[in-house]
Every structure is written in C-alpha cells, then in structure tokens.
C-alpha cells in the first residue's frame, strides 16, 4: 500500500475535529483516552480469568502443570515476546510522528507495527503446528494426546490454547484495525482532523503487548521449575 501524501497537509496544524456533543477539544481528547483506558480494564479482567485458571491448576496439580509446561515451545514464545516489544517501539514511533505532523514517517511506523504483528502471528501459527505434530492438542478428539495418563496436564494445555488463542484474536483484530487506520491516516489532512485516533489505537496495541508480557511468564516460564 503506497501512502498518498500531500505536501499541503504538512502545513495544516496537527489537531482534531470537534464532535457535536463536546464543548472543547481538550475535553474530547481526554474523553477518548479515558474511554480506551476503561476498555483496557475490561480486557485485563477478561485475560485475568484465564490466568487465574492457570494459577489454580498449578495449585491443584503442580506436577502435571510442570510436565505440560515443558512441552510448550519456550523459545518461540520468547522470540514472540521480542517481536511484540519491538512492535511497541514502532507504535510509539507512529504516535510521536503523528504529534509532530510527520505523516509519511507515521505511516511507515504503522506499517512496520502491522508487519511485526504479522510476524508474531506467523510464529504463533508455526508453534501451534509444532504442538499438533507433537500430539499436544488434547482438545481434539481425533488426535491422540502425548501424555495420555496425565489427565490434569490436559487442562493446563487447554488453558494455554484458550489464553494464547484469545490473545491471537486480539492481535488479529489489532492488525485489522491498524490496516484500516493506516489507510485512513495516509490521506491528506488526516492529522489535522483525527490525530488522537493514532494515540488511542496505540494504547490498544501496547496493551496487547502488555498482556503477552504477562501471559508468557505465567504459562511458559514459571511452570518450568
């Protein structure tokens, strides 16, 4: 996708258009950011439920959980953490560029962010494929399970699929929104009308990173010992 840029746009001030229900632009910016933070709280509690399940399973069946956790692809998970941390950096780049009215740079940063997100998904897909190959998909009836006598280990692996799957859904949603937003944001004059949307989306993206930073140690790391 080639960004369509106009040099006139750079001359327009970086700003937002006031919506009918607000009185001032500062109020509108504040409300939009506030709204996203509220949404992120709900997302955190959503993932919190799955992490609680993992913790309770560890309390109830420590040996089985450890046995199951060593079957997770530790280094793929670690590489994916690196990928997401880098994508947070490029997202910060997009936000800072948008504040300075550097539209071309911003669009490039957003595309880089989307690219890194896609790398994460590809690695994740490969990880799932390896899990399938190694018979670590206990929720599939037709596929024999690698640890047939350790029932409790199934529960942990299934929770792993639920948590990483839910995270994956969030990432796919994030990339989809990012692509649409990039397309819109590459139009002339966008930054003088909707600059704050980049920041709002950025919060969501950083949050996807944040969730992974909690999910990775909870599932892959602390259960190895």
């Amino acid at each position: 996708m080639r960004p369509v840029l106009s040099y006139v746009a750079a001359a327009l001030p970086v700003d937002i258009a006031l919506e009918e229900q607000f009185t001032t632009k500062a109020q509108q910016r504040h409300a939009a950011k506030f709204g996203m933070w509220c949404w992120l709280i709900t997302e955190l509690l959503l993932f919190g439920g799955l992490l609680l399940v993992a913790t309770v399973l560890r309390v109830l069946h420590p040996a089985s959980v450890s046995a199951a956790a060593t079957h997770l692809k530790f280094w793929i998970g670690a590489s994916n953490t690196v990928v997401l941390i880098c994508s947070s950096l490029t997202m910060s780049g997009a936000i800072n560029a948008s504040r300075l009215g550097l539209q071309t740079l911003m669009v490039r940063c957003m595309l880089a962010t989307g690219g890194l997100g896609s790398v994460f998904l590809l690695l994740k897909a490969y990880e799932y494929y390896r899990d399938y190959q190694e018979h670590m998909v206990p929720f599939l009836d037709w596929r024999p399970y690698a640890l047939p006598h350790d029932h409790a280990s199934r529960l942990f692996i299934n929770d792993y699929f639920a948590a990483t799957g839910l995270h994956g859904v969030h990432l796919i949603t994030g990339i989809a929104i990012l692509l649409v937003l990039t397309r819109q944001a590459s139009r002339a004059g966008y930054l003088s009308l909707h600059q704050n949307r980049i920041e709002i989306f950025g919060l969501y993206w950083h949050f996807i990173d944040l969730v992974w930073i909690i999910v990775f140690p909870t599932l892959y790391l602390v259960n190895r010992g």
Partner: peptide
C-alpha cells in the same frame, strides 16, 4: 483507572486462592 484493573485482578486472585 489504569492501575485499578490490576487491583481488581488482584482481588479476584486473592479471594479465590
């Protein structure tokens, strides 16, 4: 608000555990 979400996850963990 940013911190409150974590506080509530903590409530859930502590009371369940």
């Amino acid at each position: 608000f940013g911190v409150a979400g974590f506080l509530w996850v903590a409530i859930m963990f502590v009371m369940t555990l």
